[in-house]
Design a protein around this nucleic acid. Structure first.
Lengths: 208, 208
DNA sequence: CGCTCTCCAATATGAGCATATTGTTTCTAG
DNA sequence: CTAGAAACAATATGCTCATATTGGAGAGCG
């Protein structure tokens, strides 16, 4: 039914307004009234489509993470197609998560705000861990591919290594955002590369 | 004057109550009234000693970070005295920051809650960056020592390397806390060690 | 036509909060 | 000894917010 689509559209419209508010003023500054105003709708509409504020925030978080994940997967496929080294492809894919320009800084603020709240709200933690698992699977796949290719030592356990890389990216992101003087883009990228070198130290064997 | 001491004591008393509240319910749940109740004092007293809620939170954050920093420096000295390898000493010092038991989890929650808020509040960011700088200097010193000793390649730039290690610890901490199934203590420690190996790969030369 | 249900807007309600105000006691300086 | 300042306690104020309530405009339908 088109009514279902319309329903989903409305929810997305409000969720995007929430996203903008979080990016600009932080999660703490989001209220139903402000979200409604930002989306140019009434408070009543927001109430009609979301059972509670928590519901709204959960939905918004899900939207953001799903979009970020989709983009990461899209980008990973693009890079695979170029047949470069896996380390390079993975590196570029991970480097994209670093908040090194205005656009990614805004998105990082949103994702991090929700992550921070996930510490106290199991519902948000679940959303996060689910997306994180998909992301980790993607990185783990790249590492596994690297084993076949010869870039990764055969005794490497792909899943912990992937979890480690994602954690490192997260830590570098936080520092790059909060203290760019100490952790400028150059340092963040260098440190990411250092980490990548330990997981994928080898050269890719050439197949005919 | 003893009146100054008394003043400082009172402030600390309230700040510690705030700390307990943050550890248990998160920063968002802290109110002046609750902080007063937790400290077993009146709202009026809190107002008397703190100009505003922001002032109270800033003070509490400063207290927590300073204590954590002091402990880290204390621990570093202890480890230095044992004349083990620098990598091992640094590793133990950094590993202590990981939220791997109840005590450190509680403290991590407090520190992370403030860090998250620092994203939107420059005043808190300043507190954080100041402590972080001291911590980084400590790690950088260890790395520099490692150069003299031979554990660290001579072309290593100590400060970025130190910043990288601290960022990695932060990322591992976040993941270990939010998703312990994926990032259990064993994996967090292994990944930390992997990072340490890239910065301090060598063996310490023996002197006389 | 009239009934009901969805969709939405406007407003009401009541709780929680930071901060202000006022009152009271306890030092302390002159 | 006493004025007044410091150190509180209790309560008031006024705002913000999530949610509840009410009302109404269309849309489908018998």
């Amino acid at each position: 039914m088109a009514t279902e689509e319309y329903h989903a559209l409305r929810r997305r419209q409000v969720a995007e307004a929430v996203e903008r508010l979080v990016a600009e003023h932080g999660l703490a500054a989001v209220t139903i009234a402000k979200a409604a105003a930002e989306a140019a709708v009434s408070v009543g509409l927001v109430q009609h489509y979301f059972a509670s504020k928590d519901d709204l925030l959960r939905y918004a978080y899900t939207q953001v993470t799903e979009r970020a994940l989709a983009r990461a997967q899209q980008r990973a496929q693009e890079l695979d197609a170029h047949h470069g080294s896996i380390r390079r492809a993975l590196g570029e894919s991970l480097a994209e998560r670093l908040p090194l320009d205005e656009t990614r800084q805004a998105e990082w603020r949103v994702l991090f705000a929700f992550t921070a709240r996930a510490v106290d709200q199991p519902i948000l933690a679940a959303v996060r861990n689910q997306t994180e698992a998909a992301l980790r699977a993607q990185v783990a796949q790249a590492i596994t591919n690297g084993k076949e290719c010869g870039e990764v030592p055969p005794d490497t356990d792909a899943d912990p290594a992937a979890a480690g890389l994602l954690a490192i990216v997260e830590g570098l992101s936080l520092h790059a955002y909060l203290d760019p003087a100490t952790m400028p883009a150059s340092v963040a990228l260098a440190e990411l590369n250092r980490a990548l070198m330990t997981v994928l130290p080898g050269q890719c064997r050439q197949y005919d």
